[in-house]
């Protein structure tokens, strides 16, 4: 299909942010994004003409923010609402090979939903990883450098070279990627073997480094992972906030034509246009 026919569902509920930036990124890359409230997908409190079906879209994006006020845990409430009312539709969407992107709070939601890390099944009943409190104990809002660590499985980074470093800002309090302590090594090895690790935090020399380069103390400096099929991807930093060259932290010195984050959007659109 043509890129302009690719329909992108940008899912919102109360407390979502960055949906406009995300929508703008897809629009500028030529696709047809639509900001959709969860209730429109559930057909709840909506007029018939406002009702939408997840299956009518080719890409699902859960943007950043503080959905449902981060009550219980960041992402837990929206994950529970999705799981209770549209688990089947989402599993079907993922198993058809359609891409799902979670940015920041979206990543937290995908982890709480059990679709990431998604090692053994499309969606686990309980969460199998966690994005916990930053080691610093506070909200970290800063530019971060991310190395593409993926060998080619993740469909969201196909336009990046392995080892390429991109800029994308982080803005979160709960972004420390964690696996269950007693199985940490085994599961991390599985993620590596499956090529599920996508972005790692690095310093200006491209080396793995501590705080503040790794803003949260994430295991193995993980900033983003994909599921074992490569079509569900979550990352804590915001690629939509470096879509344009002038959004780069060093734009006054370097003035690039495009922002680094653009590659994420162009990669997934390229995949969808070829596959569907």
């Amino acid at each position: 299909m043509k890129v302009e026919e690719v329909k992108v569902c940008i899912l919102i509920i109360e407390g979502t942010n960055c949906e406009e930036e995300t929508s703008q990124a897809f629009r500028r890359s030529g696709a047809s994004p639509e900001i959709v409230h969860l209730k429109q997908l559930l057909g709840q409190d909506t007029r018939p003409e406002e009702t939408r079906k997840l299956g009518d879209y080719q890409i699902l994006v859960i943007p950043g923010g503080f959905s449902s006020g981060d009550y219980v845990r960041a992402g837990a409430i929206l994950a529970a609402r999705i799981k209770s009312r549209m688990e089947g539709a989402l599993v079907e969407f993922i198993e058809e090979g359609k891409p799902v992107l979670g940015i920041c709070n979206g990543f937290q939601i995908l982890v709480e939903l059990g679709v990431l890390p998604g090692i053994q099944s499309t969606m686990s009943r309980y969460p199998t990883a966690s994005l916990g409190w930053n080691d610093s104990g506070r909200f970290e809002c800063r530019p971060t450098l991310l190395e593409n660590w993926n060998k080619g499985k993740c469909i969201f980074t196909s336009m990046l070279e392995r080892g390429q470093i991109i800029q994308a800002p982080t803005a979160h309090a709960e972004g420390k990627f964690m696996l269950p302590k007693h199985r940490e090594k085994e599961l991390l090895d599985t993620l590596k073997d499956n090529d599920q690790i996508v972005f790692r935090y690095v310093d200006a020399e491209g080396q793995i480094a501590g705080y503040p380069w790794n803003p949260n103390g994430s295991l193995f400096s993980i900033a983003g992972i994909c599921n074992s099929e490569g079509n569900v991807f979550g990352m804590m930093p915001h690629p939509e906030r470096t879509y344009f060259g002038f959004q780069q932290a060093d734009w006054t010195r370097n003035v690039p034509d495009n922002g680094d984050g653009k590659a994420v959007f162009e990669s997934v659109l390229d995949y969808v246009a070829k596959k569907f």
Binding site: V72, R73, A76, A80, R125, P127, S130, M178, L179
Partner: peptide
């Protein structure tokens, strides 16, 4: 607890 109130990882 397992489905909403707690995350068994942490």
């Amino acid at each position: 607890c397992n489905r909403l109130l707690a995350n068994p990882v942490i």
